[in-house]
Write a protein that binds this DNA or RNA. Structure first.
Lengths: 235, 235
DNA sequence: ACCTGAACACCGTTCAAGT
DNA sequence: ACCTGAACACCGTTCAAGT
């Protein structure tokens, strides 16, 4: 009935390519992904990929979006949005966990949501929930941004990983306070988690102070478009 | 007296290479730096660089270290370390300014101090000052880490830059709260600065609360007025 | 000691050709 | 429509050769 019958089904699909790229990145890192290598992994030749994606970067973006899609956002549709602090906290843990599962992908995710649908969904959910909780829109934008800064910063620059595992690198004459720094590499996970928890708590405590200081009119219901000024008096 | 006299002075030096690489990165970004291109900029052939650096990555690290070296640390040697909050605040601004001057280099700096002397000097100064102010060493480590997270995260993932400047990317049916998102690209600087200031203030307020709650052994009386008030239920 | 050209084993991407 | 081999313009790095 139809035209001529397909000789055989396609070897490739966007999903297959994204899945293979994700596995390769997790296993061997971002630098391991070349179009030729990825194609070989899929049993095809390099240029075949260009039938499904316009550039290699588009493939990376698609993999990153798949990770963003796994970030839990259910804490934000809790009706009234009263408890913005708890929602923000739980979301931060979920976000961090997603990044920790795919550390090699963090540099891609840290570039921002761009055009990635799942990345935009995350930004949308945070912003919407903060406004619903009574934050002025400008402040809600800032909160989405600064939480991203902190979470991706912690995932990317895993602090302890930045120190080499080699005592001789830290001459006490040069760095009087870094005598134990080579131990950081061993206790990496502990330090990273501790710093993240301390920082998250400080951030939420500090935001709670700012929330308490908001003009009474702006709380409890969706705020007007007027939007308070930026960050108060800082700097 | 000496052996045979040098025929002519060397064409290259580590300093010249680092300076040329820095200029190239600032002008055209990290991807513009290939060994051949950089060598051409210096009037030599590609492999010549390998007489002065072992790898291209070592060149990048040296450029990054030069940026770290320009971060002001003078606020940390203020004798008693009483006012750790102000010192941390001023340092954060200085750090952010250094990164903002060389945005293309942030991905390199975000990897952590590694073996870079100036990077280690920064970590050493922060840690030392916090301990001197009465923070327990473990907490001082966390503070150094979480400040790094936030500052490099904000420089790298410049929030607004992550959104495309194209209204059609944000279908209200998909993202009900992102109606104005394409405006972010225009107001990028404003949003980034506002988010940074809001976040920094929250972070310091939150840390002040934790400082005030330290066992009396950790003295200092440095907590600012903002810390005294409530609002810090645990996360 | 320092620079060179040639070479090796790679890249991302385009394109005419096949089916 | 989808895949291929060949080709273009690149990479980082090594090395024997020159001075």
């Amino acid at each position: 009935m139809c035209r001529m019958a397909r000789p055989r089904k396609p070897l490739l699909s966007r999903d297959r390519i994204v899945a293979a790229a994700g596995s390769l990145i997790d296993a061997e890192g971002l630098e391991a992904v070349s179009t030729r290598r990825l194609a070989a992994e899929l049993g095809v030749s390099g240029p075949s990929l260009y039938n499904h994606f316009r550039t290699k970067d588009e493939i990376l973006e698609a993999v990153a979006d798949a990770v963003s899609a796994r970030v839990d956002l259910s804490m934000f549709d809790a009706s009234d949005g009263r408890d913005w602090r708890t929602a923000l906290h739980d979301w931060a843990l979920s976000y961090r966990a997603a990044l920790a599962d795919h550390p090699h992908l963090v540099p891609v995710l840290a570039r921002g949501p761009g055009r990635r649908p799942a990345g935009l969904r995350v930004a949308d959910a945070v912003f919407g929930a903060m406004v619903r909780a009574g934050w002025p829109p400008a402040q809600a934008t800032h909160i989405g941004a600064l939480m991203r800064y902190f979470i991706t910063g912690s995932a990317l620059g895993s602090f302890a990983r930045g120190f080499v595992d080699d005592e001789s690198a830290y001459d006490p004459a040069d760095y009087p306070h870094l005598g134990q720094a080579h131990l950081l590499a061993e206790r990496r996970e502990q330090v990273d988690r501790g710093a993240f928890e301390t920082g998250l708590r400080a951030l939420l405590d500090g935001l709670a102070l700012q929330y308490a200081a908001l003009a009474p009119g702006g709380r409890g219901a969706a705020a007007t478009g007027a939007a308070a000024r930026g960050g108060g008096q800082g700097g």
